[in-house]
């Protein structure tokens, strides 16, 4: 059994979002970088749990990024996993990234691939589906529960206002969100062993870049709050009805 977990580097959730170079580049000034929370808390931890249940499982991590993503991938290895692969490329185009991951996946002969539900920077929710299509694999997005019995996976996924229980035989690609696992804090032993785990760097395969970011924009600032006295909630309702006209 071989599992591949996709890891992405994102700005910390409290990072101040601003742009430079005439609003064409994200300003990384003073920004702390973290493992994308969905990748770390759910995808990675569930894969580690599967390995704990069946120690013969081989667990690899993959990231597409330049050398500056290495601290993130080492941190992921400190939580768990046998080795990591970094595809030495930088891109914001989902197809390009998916093509790199699909190539690593093909070469590695994996049975199961996990991604997070989306990255908290580009919010594309698209890498998983694209990799699955490129490999002609089934894809179950937005999983809230994942169980494996031999080569048959039972996955509960979120749907609009409901849930669906699916069954599929490996190979399979699943995107993970809350419910799949619980966040783990790396311990000292994990941190020490992560230093010596293999981190392979591979060069990207040729792939097209189908999209490009032209510019960024911040939402307009709010005009300021209109406060209504606590003893007059009816006035608030009147304003919402007559002034804001929201109902």
């Amino acid at each position: 059994m071989k599992i591949l977990v996709c890891i992405s580097k994102t700005p910390d959730t409290t990072a101040k979002i601003s742009f430079t170079q005439n609003n064409t580049k994200f300003s990384s000034d003073g920004v702390q970088w973290i493992i994308n929370p969905y990748d770390e808390w759910y995808a990675l931890v569930r894969a580690i749990e599967l390995k704990e249940k069946d120690p013969s499982t081989v667990l690899h991590l993959v990231t597409v990024g330049l050398a500056d993503t290495e601290p993130i991938i080492r941190k992921a290895l400190a939580i768990g996993g046998d080795e990591a692969i970094r595809v030495n490329a930088d891109s914001a185009d989902p197809f390009y990234i998916a093509a790199q991951i699909a190539d690593v996946a093909r070469q590695g002969g994996y049975d199961l691939i996990f991604t997070g539900k989306e990255t908290i920077d580009y919010n594309g929710s698209s890498i998983g589906g694209m990799v699955a299509e490129l490999m002609d694999w089934p894809y179950i997005p937005l999983a809230v529960k994942f169980e494996l019995n031999g080569t048959v996976a039972t996955v509960v996924r979120e749907t609009e206002g409901g849930e669906e229980t699916d069954e599929a035989t490996l190979p399979l690609l699943v995107s993970c969100q809350k419910g799949v696992a619980e966040q783990r804090i790396p311990n000292m032993k994990g941190i020490m062993s992560a230093r010596t785990k293999p981190l392979k760097v591979v060069e990207p395969v040729a792939a097209e870049t189908l999209t490009s970011i032209v510019s960024f924009e911040l939402p307009p600032a709010k005009a300021g709050v209109k406060l209504i006295p606590a003893d007059n909630p009816a006035e608030l309702i009147r304003l919402l009805h007559e002034e804001a006209k929201v109902f």
Partner: peptide
């Protein structure tokens, strides 16, 4: 992008 904190023109 950035979970609603900004927009990108793609």
């Amino acid at each position: 992008v950035f979970s609603g904190k900004a927009f990108a023109h793609v």
